[in-house]
C-alpha cells in the first residue's frame, strides 16, 4: 500500500500545485470559454447531466457564469501562492467543476477534461503538510518529504494514465475492434486538419497504421508504472511529443491532461538546475 504514499519533496508538490492553479486561470480566461457564452444561450438548450440532476443545478445565467469564472480566477491566484491551500483550493474545485459542467450541459461534452477533477479535488488535502514551511523546506534548507504530497502526485499519475487506457476501451465499445481499420483519423483530418497534414489524405494506409500504433500504446499505457524511473520519464516525454504532433495536425490539445502529466516529473530538480544544490535526488 505504500506504493500509493511515496514520501516526495514537498517542493515538488508545491511547484505542481502552482502550475495547476496558474493553468486554471489560463483555462478559464482563454481555453474553455464556451461555458461563459452559455450564460447567453436560451435555457431551451440546457440538458442537465447526471451531476446536475443530482445536485439540482439550474440553467446558466449571465450572473452565474460571471461568478464562477471570476471565482475560479481569484481563488486560483490565491492557491497558486500556496496560501490557504484548503479553502482556496476547495473554492477553485467547486467553481471550476461547476463552470465546466455549464460548458458541457448544452449538447456537447468534451472528452478530455474529467481527470483534472482529481487534481483539483485532491490538492487541498495537502494543506496541513505546509504548516511548518510553506515552500517545503525546513529552516536550515533541507527538503521536507511528505506522504500526503506523494499521494496526490501518485493519484494524479494514476488517473492521467487511466485516460489513455480507458480511451482505448471506449474505442472498442463505441467503434468496435475494427476501429483500428476505420477512417477515423481521415475524418479528423477532413474536418479539422491543418494545411501541412492534408497530404495524409492521399495516404490513408498511413493514417490507419497510426491508429494501430495509438491503440497499442493506449492499451499498454499502464505499464509505465512498472518502468524504471529513467524510462518512466522518457515515456512521459513521448506522450508530450504525441500531443504536440496531434496539436500540429488537427489543433486539438488536451490541456488539463498535459498539466496532469507534470506529476511524473521531478519538478524541484528542474527548478534547481543552474543553482548549486545539495538536495538529494528522490525517486517517486
Amino acid at each position: 500500500m505504500n506504493w500509493l504514499f511515496p514520501a516526495v519533496p514537498l517542493r515538488r508538490l508545491a511547484l505542481f500545485r502552482t502550475m495547476v492553479y496558474l493553468y486554471v486561470v489560463i483555462d478559464v480566461l482563454w481555453l474553455q470559454t464556451s461555458g461563459w457564452y452559455h450564460g447567453y444561450a436560451d435555457p431551451v438548450w440546457y440538458e442537465p447531466l447526471r451531476m446536475g440532476q443530482l445536485l439540482h443545478l439550474p440553467a446558466a445565467t449571465v450572473p452565474l457564469v460571471n461568478t464562477l469564472k471570476w471565482g475560479s480566477v481569484a481563488a486560483a491566484l490565491v492557491a497558486a501562492t500556496g496560501r490557504l491551500p484548503r479553502l482556496a483550493g476547495s473554492v477553485v474545485a467547486i467553481c471550476w467543476i461547476w463552470y465546466m459542467y455549464i460548458a458541457y450541459a448544452y449538447g456537447k461534452v468534451d472528452h478530455d477534461r474529467g481527470d483534472f477533477v482529481i487534481a483539483l479535488l485532491l490538492l487541498p488535502t495537502v494543506g496541513s503538510a505546509f504548516a511548518q514551511a510553506r515552500w517545503g523546506r525546513t529552516a536550515d534548507g533541507r527538503d521536507i518529504l511528505s506522504q500526503a504530497g506523494g499521494f496526490v502526485l501518485r493519484a494524479v499519475q494514476i488517473f492521467a494514465i487511466a485516460t489513455y487506457f480507458l480511451s482505448a476501451w471506449a474505442k472498442v465499445r463505441f467503434g468496435g475492434w475494427d476501429w483500428v481499420n476505420s477512417a477515423t483519423m481521415a475524418r479528423a483530418v477532413v474536418r479539422r486538419g491543418t494545411p501541412w497534414v492534408k497530404w495524409l489524405l492521399d495516404a490513408p494506409w498511413l493514417l490507419q497504421a497510426t491508429q494501430w500504433a495509438l491503440f497499442a500504446a493506449e492499451m499498454a499505457s499502464p505499464l509505465i508504472f512498472l518502468a524504471s524511473e529513467r524510462w518512466r520519464r522518457r515515456i512521459v516525454y513521448a506522450w508530450f511529443a504525441f500531443h504536440a504532433v496531434t496539436y500540429a495536425s488537427i489543433t486539438i490539445a488536451f490541456w488539463p491532461h498535459l498539466v496532469m502529466l507534470l506529476a511524473f516529473l521531478p519538478l524541484e530538480q528542474y527548478a534547481d538546475r543552474g543553482k548549486p544544490s545539495s538536495a538529494a535526488s528522490v525517486v517517486l
Binding site: L49, H111, G114, S167, K171, R173, G175, S182
Partner: peptide, 20 residues
Amino acid sequence: DDWWPFSPWRMFSTSTDPNG
C-alpha cells in the same frame, strides 16, 4: 456523456466507414 466528469473517454472513438 451525461456521466461527466466520469464519462467515457470517447474522443475519436467512433469508426468511420472508409466508403461512407
